[in-house]
């Protein structure tokens, strides 16, 4: 039923457990089948220095969690956010069609943990300070990309704060993204 790679990750899952003092926690569950996954991350210098997971689910769900953790470890925040469910399934040498939904939980749980980290960072920083939306390191409003993580930083036209790449509106002031405004015009 499962590929050798899936079974190998299932039998020897990487990065199982919890981080004592995590920077971000993501928990997702599938209310239909009852599966659940939690990811915890530790961030150092804009990179995922530690990733741990716990999973209640089938063989595919456990293998997916293990693979996601392995793929994310050491990556920058932006790189980790770009990991898709399809990438995970591909790395595992494919999943049975009826198990693809299990892989959806994996990347989602990781992304939720990173979003949790970013939200915590936003709360920590003093009002008015500019920080990269991906690694949360300080960015000068005039800079076009973040020095620590290298991501291109777009600035909100209204308040001048950096915008996450896929944000439709500014997380700081709520203004619609520039392109969106242009489209409406």
């Amino acid at each position: 039923m499962y590929s050798e790679k899936v079974m190998e990750h299932f039998r020897n899952p990487r990065n199982v457990g919890e981080i004592p003092d995590p920077d971000g926690i993501g928990e997702v569950g599938n209310p239909v089948c009852g599966d659940m996954m939690t990811f915890q991350v530790k961030v150092r210098d804009g990179r995922l220095a530690d990733v741990k997971f716990k999973t209640f689910g089938c063989g595919a769900a456990i293998a997916v969690s293990s693979m996601v953790s392995e793929m994310a470890l050491g990556k920058t925040i932006e790189e980790a956010l770009r990991i898709t469910n399809a990438d995970v399934a591909k790395e595992l040498g494919g999943l049975p069609p009826n198990k693809l939904h299990c892989s959806n939980l994996g990347a989602d749980a990781l992304h939720k943990a990173i979003e949790d980290y970013l939200a915590r960072e936003r709360q920590k920083r003093p009002a008015g300070e500019c920080r990269c939306p991906y690694c949360a390191e300080p960015v000068h409003p005039a800079e076009k990309f973040c020095q620590p993580c290298g991501v291109t930083v777009d600035n909100c036209r209204k308040c001048g704060k950096p915008l996450p790449r896929d944000a439709f509106e500014c997380p700081e002031c709520g203004a619609a993204r520039a392109e969106e405004e242009e489209k409406e015009d």
């Binding site: 899952p13 199982v16 457990g17 919890e18 928990e27 997702v28 569950g29 599938n30 209310p31 659940m36 996954m37 939690t38 997971f53 716990k54 999973t55 209640f56 456990i62 939904h101 959806n104 939980l105 989602d108 749980a109």
Partner: peptide, 22 residues
């Protein structure tokens, strides 16, 4: 490796439904 068991051990309700993902 079960988050439900971890919750149970922390004294939380392991069967509270988390936000749905899929």
């Amino acid at each position: 490796m079960s988050p439900l068991y971890a919750k149970y051990q922390r004294g939380e309700d392991p069967y509270a439904t988390p936000e749905s993902s899929c």
